[in-house]
Design a protein around this nucleic acid. Sequence first.
DNA 1: GTGAAGTCTCTTGATATCGAGCTTCTTGAC
DNA 2: GTCAAGAAGCTCGATATCAAGAGACTTCAC
Lengths: 165, 165
Amino acid sequence: MEDEVDRLVASWRRERPDLDVEPLEVLSRVSRLARHLDRARRLAFSEHSLEPWEFDVLTALRRAGSPYQLSPGQLLTQTLVTSGTMTNRIDRLAKKGLVERLPDPSDRRGVLVRLTDEGKDRADRSLAGLLDQERAILGELSSAQRAELASLLRQLTAPFDNIPG
Amino acid sequence: MEDEVDRLVASWRRERPDLDVEPLEVLSRVSRLARHLDRARRLAFSEHSLEPWEFDVLTALRRAGSPYQLSPGQLLTQTLVTSGTMTNRIDRLAKKGLVERLPDPSDRRGVLVRLTDEGKDRADRSLAGLLDQERAILGELSSAQRAELASLLRQLTAPFDNIPG
DNA sequence: GTGAAGTCTCTTGATATCGAGCTTCTTGAC
DNA sequence: GTCAAGAAGCTCGATATCAAGAGACTTCAC
């Protein structure tokens, strides 16, 4: 089946036959799919009264394992946002009672952000909802195809994730 | 090579062994790669004094072919933003002299957005820069792998692009 | 023709994000 | 010890985005 990127590439080949636009076949699809996913995630989370950014922070803490706490700096690297944004996010999550700020006993500049019991519950429940949603989207692909796709994507993400960028 | 999603998935398997988190192998990589791409694109466009959103609008018009004009509604579907955002973008591009608004002769509710000569030049030059950048990122993959990846991604994007969503 | 429903673009108000700079504290050379 | 350099998190101003709704116009059934 054709998609929007097929149409996009065909347009460029007509308008700029001198250029090799083959890279767009992969990377424009990645960008567009990500935007569609953002919308789908927003919808899925709204059933749990969570915003996508809230999910990102809560699940980062949940994944850390007991006692479910990380520094703001560690949260930055996992969520790819700036420090000002993270301060704001922690403020709002704390106001909702989903996380709490504690002083870092080993560094008085530092802070630890800890999940509350309710925060942990919300993280667990919304993760299950997200996975259901994602399974529906991936239903187009066989299990082998999903593995192949994951492997190819890993080759593209690894340089970004391993070289400080 | 390992990437951040491998670590993410491993954390979930440790914390929530009861859940099947395999969908994240694909879709979390798509989301994270898209964020990395946004940053890389921003850098590439800054050499041409363009923002990513300006590139998106200008090239949509460029691809339309002579006389390089589309309605705001057509631009919406190509760029996946809301109508308020598009109004704002057209305003700013018009102020910079890269596009101009014309009344639609066949529908008095409507407007046509047309690329100026300078807008067309900027679109053409920045596209070449983007393709160079993207080729560098895709250098990790063989030609056959890129084709395979594009095909798998198409299967995921096609439902979004063809069912009104 | 007329009215209801739909379409297209723009306006408005709220909000999340970024970038740059600041304050407090830690580290390491001397 | 002391001081400079660096790191951690926060504040602030500017900006782009979205959601919801308004206004103008078109379409279609009757």
